[in-house]
Design a binder for these strands. Sequence first.
DNA 1: CGGTGAGTTGATGTTCGTCAAACCGTGTGG
DNA 2: CCACACGGTTTGACGAACATCAACTCACCG
Lengths: 248, 248
Amino acid sequence: MLNIEEISSPLEPLFQRLRLRDRLSEAEHLALAGAMGGTLVVTEGDEVVEEGDVPSHSLLLVDGLAARYRVLPNGSRQISAFQVAGDFVDLPSFTLKVIDHSITAISTCRFITFPHKELAKIVEDYPHLTRLLWMTTLLDSAVQREWLIGVGRRSSIQRAAHLFCELGLRLDVVHKGQPEHFGFPATQADLADALGISLVHSNRVIQSLRVMGLLEWRRGEIVVPDVSALHRFADFDPTYLHLDHHPR
Amino acid sequence: MLNIEEISSPLEPLFQRLRLRDRLSEAEHLALAGAMGGTLVVTEGDEVVEEGDVPSHSLLLVDGLAARYRVLPNGSRQISAFQVAGDFVDLPSFTLKVIDHSITAISTCRFITFPHKELAKIVEDYPHLTRLLWMTTLLDSAVQREWLIGVGRRSSIQRAAHLFCELGLRLDVVHKGQPEHFGFPATQADLADALGISLVHSNRVIQSLRVMGLLEWRRGEIVVPDVSALHRFADFDPTYLHLDHHPR
DNA sequence: CGGTGAGTTGATGTTCGTCAAACCGTGTGG
DNA sequence: CCACACGGTTTGACGAACATCAACTCACCG
């Protein structure tokens, strides 16, 4: 007899992410565990997938920080998402086939591969689990939409504050950090590309947050002295993270 | 015996959108037709769904132009997507449950409702069709990601040009326009909110495109005199629209 | 001890927002 | 038929947010 606790440990972040939103049956736990392929480790700074790839498997991030991005012809880079443990960084390729953006490892990342063939079996046999996997892609999409709203209509300082509110909560869900203290192994250049501002400006934004007492950031660690103050400053409303439990 | 042509006419835009990307069997055509609920007409300027709604059905837009948006506490509005015929404006609510953004009718819109109960049946019985519906939500997400990249890293003029390249192609897919000529019943204020700029600036951007000979826009009609010139100016690469045919 | 990547600072210019006013076609009521 | 209101568009003047260029510091590492 398989023991969920034993086989599932690398999948725990995904399970936590799913179980926060809905019940996950034992059979569904096992189905996911059974669909696992191998492990993939990508060292800091390397590419995980590149624009134009047509992967035969999807990647679940189980440890580390990754970034989805595109580089424009003029050389500038825009990061469209940070991915943390429990995020299926590559699930869109299951139905979209061709990857339309690249993914890089901000810190060294550990992934679990899920062959598309195995995912297709889940779609055949586990309709509820299928909806949950579908949901995870829509969660990513909701976060991305919030970023779009921020880049379009929030000041760069608010946007930075908003990002740190978001990351704190998302890491909390998968027990990889807390809203008041979590790892963020990115550089100020990475942050600039995520916020859609220049490197110099990103430095000044961080300094502003520091002097306002809203943020500390040293050696890859973020400390938020007063979480609710940061939330207020950022006009942060976590609705878009869909942290609530529903039958889906 | 049901005749596809007869029952499917309001679904044609969706079928075209799907068939461009993959084969759609007769059974799948019928399954979609069978999942249809009623028709919903929303007049210009009215809300289709509002933030916080928990709908029991999803909405397929079959005619008109709609916009997904959020209003921030400071009163500014950001449009995160334009929806055209064939777009499932509301499919995320099938698994996300709570709507985290509002949708407004830019022009009068006609929708077909799909009860979530019926969609759940499709997930039970039609795995391939399920993947295609899943895909449509990821297509929306890919478009949204491209907008994020544009707002973050493109100039507002390029962004506007890029938008008109995109809309021309998307409308072409569902036979509601061509890249060189299509309806765009929005105001300059709507455009401003989509591009993340002010109304005044949106006016100046349009004028620039006009004097460059890249665009004409009168009475809700866009004319692109030289499509490839506009594409070149916008650095437009349609990869992200996933217009290619694949087994999925 | 030199090199390198990350962070920081200052000076200057551009893009874009805001405020304010005018314009223009369309529709409406006297 | 005309006066007027109204939404959408257009224009000008000014200021704020942000980019760019350039230089410097600091920690770390071979």
